[in-house]
């Protein structure tokens, strides 16, 4: 069982992910943006962070880099549904910055669980 931090500003998505991860047999807790995510992470370092990219306050790429600085070997899954500038495909960048996996929204719970297990080597 791993500890998973889920950062997404969309309540529906975050809640769905929390439930999916929980049902997948992991411990899960959430944050609404990068700032809250960093706070939660410092309080409770997780084994894996699933983070959205486009979020208010602190967006995902910065969060990934900050997380990597705090914990270089942290497992990260970046998720995104695209931003207001549709031309910007940020998931490859997230990967370059250290995310082990990326998932393009929308995705199914199965895909999420598979990605988690894959990243954690379970």
């Amino acid at each position: 069982m791993a500890s998973v931090l889920i950062i997404d500003d969309d309540d529906m998505v975050r809640t769905m992910l929390l439930r999916t991860v929980t049902r997948g047999g992991h411990e899960a807790f959430g944050a609404r943006d990068g700032v809250e995510g960093m706070t939660r992470f410092r309080d409770h370092p997780a084994d894996l962070v699933i983070t959205d990219i486009f979020m208010p306050n602190q967006e995902g790429l910065a969060t990934i880099m900050e997380l990597r600085r705090v914990k270089p070997d942290l497992k990260i899954i970046a998720i995104s549904g695209g931003g207001a500038r549709a031309s910007l495909d940020v998931l490859p960048v997230a990967e370059a910055l250290g995310a082990q996996r990326t998932l393009r929204k929308p995705f199914t719970p199965t895909e999420v669980i598979e990605a988690i297990n894959d990243v954690l080597g379970l």
Partner: peptide, 14 residues
């Protein structure tokens, strides 16, 4: 797209 994908994620997920 961004919002729509979030919604779809929720629909598919739930």
């Amino acid at each position: 797209a961004h919002d729509f994908n979030n919604i779809l994620t929720a629909i598919l997920g739930y």
